[in-house]
Computed example of a mutant assay.
Amino acid sequence: MTGVAAGESYLRVSLSRQTLEWMMDARSLRCWPVSTARNGPGERRGSECTPRGWHRVRARIGEGQPLNTVFRGRRPTGELYGEALAARHPGRDWILTRILWLGGLEPGFNRYGDVDTTWRYVYIHGSPDHGVTGIPASHGCVRLRSPDMLDLFERVPVGMKVLIEV
């Protein structure tokens, strides 16, 4: 189950351009800067790479939470990201504002077994602005600035397709 039908919108993540685009009929309707995996593309569990291919949004997490809400294990911690919190936790991988949890659609490539995107916990999620520089820096997820993540989240339904390509 890959590809999209005519008139169906989808998200396209470009690893080489470090962008996420809202697409319809091969036209980009909107574009946001992102940061993907520091380790580049790859599908293996434990690789900290961003998985390629067709995915779908399997869950939307964080609706109604304030901007910069901190998440751990897909649950809000009760914290709001800020300079003081960042100073107390300098090495933390910040997952902020909203989460779109991805599931692979290509058996043997990004679905099932050691390549399953869902069980690798790969998300599109909010990040502090300094985490989205156009340079790959994440642990496998697709990071957006928190205001951009909020904008994207409001538009994306569960089940929407996502293509991640080099």
Rank of each mutant, 00 (worst) to 15 (best):
I99T: 06
L105G: 09
T118E: 15
V122H: 07
T118A: 15
G140H: 05
D148P: 07
D114T: 03
F109V: 14
I135K: 13
D129G: 14
R120Q: 05
G126E: 01
L105H: 09
S146Y: 10
W94A: 08
R98G: 11
E106S: 09
S127V: 08
W119N: 04
N110E: 14
Y121S: 11
G113E: 02
G140S: 04
G113A: 02
I95R: 15
V142A: 05
L102M: 09
D116G: 02
P136I: 01
I135G: 00
R145D: 05
P128R: 03
P147E: 13
R120C: 09
I135Y: 08
E106Q: 13
F109T: 04
D129K: 02
G104D: 08
H125S: 08
G140C: 12
G113Y: 02
R98D: 08
V115I: 12
P136N: 04
G126D: 06
G131R: 01
V132I: 04
T117L: 12
P136L: 05
T117M: 10
Y121V: 01
L100E: 12
W94M: 05
G131M: 09
Y123V: 11
G126S: 08
S138W: 01
R120I: 10
P107M: 00
D148G: 04
W101F: 15
I95H: 10
D93N: 06
P107D: 05
W119H: 11
D114V: 04
R98E: 08
L144F: 09
T117V: 10
V142P: 03
V132F: 04
T133P: 00
P147K: 05
P128W: 06
G113L: 02
H139M: 07
T117D: 05
R92Y: 13
E106T: 04
H130N: 10
T133E: 02
R143W: 05
G103F: 03
W94N: 09
W94P: 00
R120T: 06
V132Q: 01
D148H: 13
D116Y: 00
W94K: 08
A137E: 10
P136Y: 08
W101D: 14
T133W: 00
V115W: 02
S127P: 01
D93S: 08
I135W: 07
I99N: 11
